[in-house]
Simulated assay, not measured.
Amino acid sequence: MNSLELLNVYEKVAHITAEMLVAAQSNDWELLAQLEGDCSTHVSTLREFEGPSELPADLKAKKVSIIKRILADDRAIRDITEPWMQNLANLMKSSSTTRKLSQSYGANQMG
């Protein structure tokens, strides 16, 4: 894969992460998960084909700009999803504790 093709893959990743951010802002977790899978596929392609190469200054600047956009969107997505995931974990922990208490003490309540 040549440098221009790799830049095209970076652009696709940037486009998908922008869509992921919109999905996260809309609380569309299903779409976010789907887009995350699409993004992962492209990132795997980058990992497979990216290697040390000298890019002309303009392409290098473009690549850096794309990566900065991806990282900014990723940070914004994490800012939205991490508190949501923590709340979900707390709910699950609470539900599990309630269920354990019910199993432990609920049987003793029967008179």
Rank of each mutant, 00 (worst) to 15 (best):
N108V: 07
K93G: 13
G106T: 11
L32A: 05
C39P: 00
L31R: 03
L21C: 01
L7Y: 00
D73L: 01
I77M: 05
P56D: 10
K93I: 06
D73P: 00
E54K: 08
D28L: 03
P56M: 02
S104C: 11
I16H: 02
Y10K: 05
D79M: 14
K93N: 06
A61M: 08
S53F: 07
D28K: 02
M20S: 04
V43N: 11
N8G: 09
T81F: 07
P56W: 06
S3V: 05
L59T: 00
V43K: 10
T98M: 12
A33Y: 08
L31P: 00
C39E: 11
M85Y: 03
Q103N: 14
T45Q: 09
L31I: 02
N2V: 01
R47G: 11
S65M: 12
H42F: 12
T17L: 06
N90Q: 08
S96H: 08
E19W: 10
L91C: 12
L6E: 01
V9S: 03
V64S: 03
T41V: 12
I80H: 13
S26A: 15
A14P: 03
A107D: 12
Y10W: 13
A72S: 04
Q34N: 08
S44L: 13
I16Q: 03
K63H: 01
M110F: 06
L7E: 04
Q34D: 10
R69Q: 14
P83K: 06
T97C: 15
E30V: 07
F49Y: 13
D28A: 06
D79L: 14
E48Q: 14
V43L: 13
N87A: 15
H42P: 00
I70G: 05
A18E: 14
E50V: 10
Q34P: 00
D73E: 09
A14C: 15
R75V: 04
L46K: 08
Q103A: 15
V9E: 00
W84P: 07
A14I: 10
V22K: 04
L101M: 14
K62Y: 13
S96Q: 15
R69S: 07
P83H: 03
E5G: 07
Y105D: 03
A24M: 03
L91P: 01
E5W: 04
L101Q: 10
L21Y: 06
G111P: 12
P52S: 12
M110P: 03
S95C: 09
V64M: 01
A61P: 01
E50N: 11
K93H: 15
V22F: 00
T17V: 05
A76R: 01
M92D: 06
S102N: 12
N8V: 08
G106F: 05
S104I: 09
E11K: 07
Q103T: 13
W84C: 04
E50Y: 05
D79N: 15
I70P: 04
N27S: 11
S104K: 14
N90I: 14
S95G: 09
T17K: 00
L46M: 03
S94W: 02
I80Y: 10
S53P: 04
S104M: 11
P56K: 09
V64H: 01
M110W: 04
K100L: 15
E11D: 12
R78T: 07
E36P: 04
D79C: 07
T17I: 09
